[in-house]
Amino acid sequence: MSGVELFQIWLVAFATLALFSFMYKDNPFYRVAEHVFTGLSAGYYIGLTWDTIIVTQLWNPMMSGRWWLFIPGILSLLMFTRLSPRFSWVSRTSLAFVMGVTAGGALVFQLHGLVLPQIQSTMMPLWGSEGVGTLLLTIIMVIGVISTLIYFYYSKEHKGVLGMTARVGIWFIMISFGAHFGYTVMGRVSLLIGRVQFLIEDWIGSFGQIG
């Protein structure tokens, strides 16, 4: 292991331990790491915006004949008027363009790509199912989907049949949220394992390389 590699491992270990030290209590090491992290993350966007947007998407194509790209160029600059309370209204046009294009796309793909296929897959035949297990699954699915939708339907008071169905919905939702919690625990623990794996295998493993 070269000196540079060793330095890199120790640098990562220092940053990791400095951030973990907050679990005991707030301290200057943590504050230093926290502020460096914020700065580097913001700095990352400078390089990314410069390269992937200004140079490759705007400047180069404009120079090679797509002169009309000056329009989004101006809209981009107008976005910065948000920093001035007096002129921030000017940025609305840029914002409106972003919102408009996104909404135009979303209008189609939310319905075509999510609502229709999801409803279609819920309408499974009960008769002719492959065995009792599949039939049971289909019934669970239909009841679960309908009762969940009704539980989140707040335009009418949950009374009578609506109230009863919403009650069934709560039970389904609790099962799903329980599963979510179990999975979330797993996810968070995995992230911790990743860091401890580095500290034990790479950092402590590098102790033998010193000297």
Binding site: L111, V115, V145, T148, L149, S176
Partner: peptide
Amino acid sequence: AGANMAVQRGIIIGAALGAA
């Protein structure tokens, strides 16, 4: 793939209708 999936599907359909 049963109860959880049904709930998530309900949420997906509801959220997508809202977004549209």
